[in-house]
Design a protein around this nucleic acid. Structure first.
Length: 478
DNA sequence: ATGTTC
């Protein structure tokens, strides 16, 4: 059924779908031969979706598919589309249903020896303290007024309410706040979100206690406050039901407002709104408000982690290294063909990876480069990278966001058994506490690409360079 | 990803 897309190799780890009829720009695909081959298997729509993205009005330079690219709603997950802010469009599929899904890393003063023997207890306490899985309940109790404050203020509201420090804000992309309008968030999204502040969610979301197993770049690691054997905590979560409902409703609004656009698309899921339309601006404002919610959510879980580490291990200095978004669109200045332009950069399953010097990077890291966190699949390694010097030229300042799914959730559920996975992990000293066995099977390492390979490509291309590798000690998930 | 199927 699916038509085979022809790729041309242009350099080591760099491939291209040449521009042809209907495309505004070519598609750049970054990956090793093995990773690119996985995108070319029968019925895989990653590359045809990449090609569809290249037809978007106002898209500049090239559509990007990253080494972890796999098929998603309309757009590939692991993709970047940068559009002109005047002639371009905004597309919910280029941002993702989980608005401002992202990853934050916390560092503790502990080493592996300090937590030895406490692994299971730690997993249990974290599991009890951070609501996970589908449905209602968050670590933080919030009413509707609080929710509006969160949607407007993000991490700033959290600080004013006593749930975040100034240092937390300073170590967050955008300082944990974008200028959105809570009034543009659909009422149903509000009702789904108001009691989910500080909740993990399901699927590939997790909270993991990790040990820094390898350091590749000691100087940069030191700048990030990391060293070998140090205990860190990684949180991967997003905007829960609120972001999902916001995306769903604006997809519907766009379809209704622009039936002619909907009819003309190569894929219905590519639906977009021209940026000069009011509904495009409304979606952007709602998306930024939902992004603020996601930051508050990750911050609330950070407070839960602090509570557990203080109670259980007497540790009162759990500090935020950084917090990255991997499902968002932001206006940024980029150089194309010698000129500098303001572009709306859609990153879906793509992490901003700005090199040293960019004004967006917080003071603490500006001379080094932006920290980037890339979780592997459950039970494998995760990576800390640093924004690379070539990222602005190759990927609009972006790199991958994870291992990248290889098998569908349904296929994984058929192939793997939760009990066996739990046993295998435990034999390796990793405690996994999950609310649902189904989720465990869906997230089996075999369902994902090889994260080491994804990282190797990012490092070799110098879009995000290797700083450290972390391995799990205990993991909680929905 | 998701009150996992409007």
């Amino acid at each position: 059924m699916s038509q085979q897309i022809q790729l041309t190799q242009v350099a080591e780890n760099v491939y291209e779908i040449p521009e042809d009829e209907g495309m505004e720009v070519p598609v750049r695909v970054y990956g090793s031969a093995a990773l690119v081959e996985e995108m070319q298997t029968a019925d895989d729509r990653t590359l045809s979706q990449g090609r569809n993205v290249a037809t978007l009005p106002g898209i500049r330079k090239f559509a990007v598919v990253l080494p972890d690219g796999h098929q998603g709603y309309g757009f590939p997950i692991g993709g970047v589309a940068a559009v002109d802010t005047e002639t371009g469009v905004i597309s919910p599929g280029g941002i993702g249903f989980d608005i401002n899904c992202g990853v934050r890393l916390l560092r503790t003063p502990l080493t592996a020896d300090d937590v030895a023997g406490h692994e299971e207890e730690l997993a249990e306490r974290l599991y009890e303290t951070v609501p996970c899985g589908l449905g209602k309940g968050g670590y933080l109790e919030t009413n509707m007024d609080d929710l509006r404050g969160i949607l407007d203020g993000g991490m700033e509201w959290m600080r004013e309410a006593g749930h975040a420090t100034e240092a937390d804000l300073e170590h967050c992309e955008e300082n944990g706040r974008l200028d959105g309008d809570p009034g543009k968030v659909p009422a149903e999204a509000l009702s789904r979100g108001h009691n989910q502040v500080g909740s993990l969610g399901s699927g590939n979301h997790f909270l993991e206690v990790q040990r820094v197993a390898d350091v590749y770049d000691a100087e940069t690691a030191a700048a990030f406050g990391l060293a070998e054997d140090r205990i860190v905590v990684m949180i991967h979560s997003g905007s829960r039901g609120l972001g999902h409902q916001t995306c769903t409703e604006y997809v519907r609004r766009f379809e209704r407002a622009f039936p002619d656009i909907a009819d003309s698309l190569p894929d219905k899921q590519l639906i977009y709104a021209p940026l000069d339309e009011q509904v495009a601006e409304d979606y952007k404002q709602a998306m930024y408000a939902a992004a603020n919610f996601a930051w508050a959510n990750r911050q609330a879980m950070t407070q839960a982690v602090r509570e557990v580490f203080a109670d259980l291990l007497g540790v009162n200095t759990v500090e935020l290294v950084y917090d990255v978004c991997h499902n968002i669109a932001k206006e940024e200045r980029h150089r194309i063909d010698g000129g500098e332009d303001t572009l709306l950069v859609h990153r879906k399953g793509a992490t901003r990876a700005f090199p040293a010097g960019r004004p967006e990077i917080p003071d603490a890291y500006r001379d080094v480069g932006q920290p980037v966190f890339i979780p592997g699949s459950m039970g494998t390694a995760s990576y800390v990278l640093c924004g690379g010097e070539r990222s602005l030229d190759l990927t609009f300042g972006s790199t991958a966001h994870g291992a990248g799914r290889l098998k569908s959730r349904m296929q994984a559920k058929k192939e793997y058994s939760a009990g066996e996975l739990r046993r295998t992990l435990r034999e390796r000293g990793i405690y996994v506490r999950a609310r649902s066995g189904g989720t465990l099977a869906e997230e089996a390492p075999g369902a994902y690409k090889d994260v080491d390979e994804v990282i190797r490509v990012s490092d070799a291309l110098n879009i995000g360079t290797k700083v450290a590798r972390t391995v799990p000690i205990c993991n909680i998930k929905g």
